[in-house]
Design a protein around this nucleic acid. Structure first.
Lengths: 193, 193
DNA sequence: CGCCGAGTTGAACTGAATCAAGAAACGTGG
DNA sequence: CCACGTTTCTTGATTCAGTTCAACTCGGCG
């Protein structure tokens, strides 16, 4: 199983001293979350940011028809949050759940804002993490907007190879903006080649 | 014409002192750019970030068929860049052009990074601007992924009402992931109601 | 006046959705 | 460890939103 230690992750992005790192990490709470547990519900205001040490999470919402639409997958070594709710403190459009047994570090928005005020380096970290996320979302947008269902699946294989095989067909299909049936046919036609 | 002064914009987000602001602004270069001028070309590595004081820009790329696909519009009071190229210093997938006579402030990546190092408040600014952009892109992604052509056009009217009427049909259609013909029919059916 | 780009309209076509039904895999309790 | 029920995946037939291709209109401008 993939595993990414939070302190290694932070150090890789910004050169924190060990003292800084200790102080920062003590604001995070480590937790083991069992498979299928829901961390954020639609309509709640989420005050928590999660870092995934190992395991896998996803955000999704319910469309008009009540169907779950996957919005994003979060693998190990990534920050996970209901982007709208956490950043803007509005009711979340999304659910966040864990798809397998997962180890997370969590921090509240208040504490994170404190850290931003105390450590300029944390601002840098925040900026870098957000920028990375922005480029990934832009990539997905381009894939969704201008590619056929088959090309979208290939984009997924390229960008998140691990996830494409760990996760149920239906979750992936809705993430890629197609039906489960379509994805099933695409997989079939790919495997016969 | 809409107009947004860069120093008002910066002060609104982060409480810079006047001295800080003066020092920061002297790294920006003010420029009047005539309609239709291209600022970044596909394949170039773009070292420049733009702030639009007045006017309008867009990013677009050429698809396999050689057709221009609008990726984003940038109105006054917004930062504009080839996101991939500027942040990751890779060859740009996109062109950036100005759709009308526009007044911009530009800054190079090196100078911006200097400012990030000198002023922690600039890191905060960077984080806030990136976060705002991220939420907008996520919104567009949801619109594109799960809505009909007609709903997408309504999303555009709601989110960028000014732009929807300033810009040519073809630019908007490709931005919304539909053909010009489809958008023309949607507009017709809306106006007859 | 005549050209040219932008927008409109029509008709045929198509990729993917929907609807429906069956097969396979999964997990839970006896 | 098997049996049964539930969920997940596959396959087929039909339908439809939106594309494609092609022709036409309109307004501006040299």
């Amino acid at each position: 199983m993939t595993f990414m230690n939070i302190s290694d992750f932070l150090k890789a992005l910004v050169p924190f001293t060990n003292d800084e790192l200790d102080d920062i990490l003590k604001h995070f709470k480590k937790e083991a979350v069992p498979k299928n547990q829901i961390l954020v519900r639609q309509g709640e205001v989420s005050k928590t940011l999660y870092f995934i040490e190992s395991g896998l999470g996803r955000s999704y919402y319910l469309n008009q028809a009540g169907k779950e639409i996957t919005q994003w997958f979060f693998g190990s070594g990534k920050f996970m949050a209901s982007a709208d709710s956490f950043f803007q403190q509005c009711p979340s459009l999304y659910f966040i759940e864990v798809l397998e047994d997962t180890v997370i570090y969590s921090i509240t928005k208040e504490k994170l804002d404190e850290l931003f005020d105390t450590y300029p380096k944390m601002e840098k970290l925040g900026r870098l993490v957000t920028t990375e996320m922005l480029t990934k979302v832009v990539n997905k947008l381009n894939a969704i907007q201008f590619q056929t269902a088959k090309e979208r699946y290939e984009y997924m294989l390229a960008e998140f190879p691990d996830i494409a095989y760990q996760v149920s067909l239906g979750h992936i299909a809705s993430y890629l903006g197609m039906t489960q049936e379509t994805l099933s046919r695409i997989r079939k036609s790919n495997s016969s080649k």
